[in-house]
Computed example of a mutant assay.
Amino acid sequence: MAHLSRPDLGSATWRKSSHSNTQGGDCVEVGAGLPGLVPVRDSKDPARPGIVVTGRAWAAFLGALG
């Protein structure tokens, strides 16, 4: 099995989901700035590691929602 290194998410520009509310509920942030990758994290705990998916996987996920 190949080992993939974790990209540095410190350079990502994060934005909160437009479906998040101001009540502090369950929110997701999506990062930009990593070519070909989409980092996702919990906005309530941004210090915890998020997940990183390929742009293709993210597009498929969004397509399945719509």
Rank of each mutant, 00 (worst) to 15 (best):
L37P: 07
K44G: 03
S43I: 01
A2T: 08
V38Q: 00
T13D: 10
D45N: 14
L34I: 13
G66N: 13
L37D: 02
T13V: 09
R48K: 14
V40R: 01
S18V: 08
P39Q: 10
V53D: 00
G63V: 12
E29Y: 03
E29V: 03
G10Y: 05
A47T: 13
V52T: 15
P49A: 13
D26E: 12
G63Y: 09
P46I: 06
D26C: 11
M1S: 14
G36Y: 09
S20L: 03
G24S: 11
P49R: 14
A57P: 10
R56N: 11
S43Q: 03
R41F: 03
C27I: 07
L65Q: 15
A57D: 15
A47H: 11
S20A: 15
S11F: 06
L4Q: 11
I51D: 04
G25E: 10
T13C: 05
A47W: 00
P35D: 14
C27N: 07
S11N: 08
S20T: 03
A57F: 09
P39H: 02
A60P: 11
V30Q: 01
C27W: 00
L9M: 10
A2D: 04
S5H: 04
A32H: 05
L37K: 12
S43Y: 01
S18A: 11
H19C: 07
N21I: 02
W14K: 02
G33Q: 10
H19V: 10
T13L: 08
A47G: 15
R15Q: 11
A60W: 06
G36A: 11
V30Y: 02
N21M: 05
T54F: 03
M1Q: 15
S5E: 06
L4F: 11
H19M: 12
A2R: 01
Q23F: 08
R56K: 13
D42W: 02
L34K: 11
G36R: 13
A47F: 00
V40F: 01
L62K: 12
D8N: 15
R48T: 01
M1W: 05
L34E: 08
L4R: 12
A59P: 05
V40M: 00
V28M: 05
C27Q: 08
D26A: 15
D26G: 02
V30N: 05
R41W: 10
S11Y: 07
G55P: 04
D42C: 02
P49I: 06
I51E: 01
G33F: 07
M1K: 12
D8C: 09
A12F: 01
G66V: 10
D42H: 12
A12T: 05
T22M: 08
G25A: 07
P7Y: 07
A60V: 13
H19Q: 13
G55R: 15
D8R: 11
W14C: 03
D45P: 01
A32V: 06
G33L: 07
T22V: 11
D45R: 04
T13G: 07
D26N: 09
G63R: 14
A2L: 09
S5R: 04
T13S: 12
S18H: 08
L37M: 13
F61Y: 14
L9V: 13
G66L: 11
A57M: 12
F61G: 06
G31D: 10
K16L: 02
G31I: 04
G33D: 10
V53C: 01
V53I: 15
L62P: 03
R6K: 10
G50A: 13
R41Y: 03
M1I: 14
L9C: 10
R56W: 06
G63M: 09
V52F: 07
